[in-house]
Simulated scan of single mutants.
Amino acid sequence: MNTEHLVKMANQIGAFFSTMPDHEQAVADLATHLKRFWEPRMRKAFLEHIEQTQGQGVDPIVLEAVSKHMRQLTV
């Protein structure tokens, strides 16, 4: 799985949700989006990238969504 592509996609999704007026809701909705629309292999590869690189290249809102909703994303 191309993690560069996953990071790019996650950051694009994060940019969309970052425009929401309620930051906490944006973070929760971003995590929900990843859970709903990314297949498990994509989520697994993305989470492994974050773990191995300490989130290199991943925008702060995406890292926040992943850290706050890790349990939701790994199920």
Rank of each mutant, 00 (worst) to 15 (best):
H33W: 13
A28M: 01
H5A: 13
A65H: 07
Q12V: 07
D29K: 11
H49V: 05
M1Y: 06
H23C: 02
V66Q: 10
A65Q: 07
L6W: 10
M1W: 01
E24H: 10
T53H: 12
S67Q: 14
Q72H: 10
I13D: 01
K44C: 03
A26K: 02
A26C: 03
N2Y: 03
A10F: 00
L63V: 10
G55P: 06
I61N: 13
L6Q: 04
D22P: 00
A26H: 02
T32V: 04
V62W: 05
A31Y: 05
H49P: 04
V58I: 14
G55Q: 11
N11D: 11
L34D: 00
Q52G: 09
G55W: 13
L73W: 06
T32G: 04
Q25L: 11
D29M: 07
Q54G: 14
F17P: 01
Q72L: 15
D59E: 15
Q52E: 14
M20C: 04
H49N: 05
A15W: 06
Q12H: 07
M42A: 15
K8C: 01
R43C: 04
E64Y: 01
A31T: 03
R43T: 08
A10N: 02
M42T: 09
D29W: 00
K8N: 08
G57F: 11
K44S: 12
T19C: 08
G57D: 12
E48Q: 14
F37V: 01
H69R: 12
E48Y: 02
F46S: 08
V62L: 08
H33I: 00
L47T: 02
H69P: 02
L73V: 06
H23K: 15
D22V: 15
D29H: 05
K68G: 11
I13R: 01
H49M: 11
P60L: 09
A10W: 00
L47V: 03
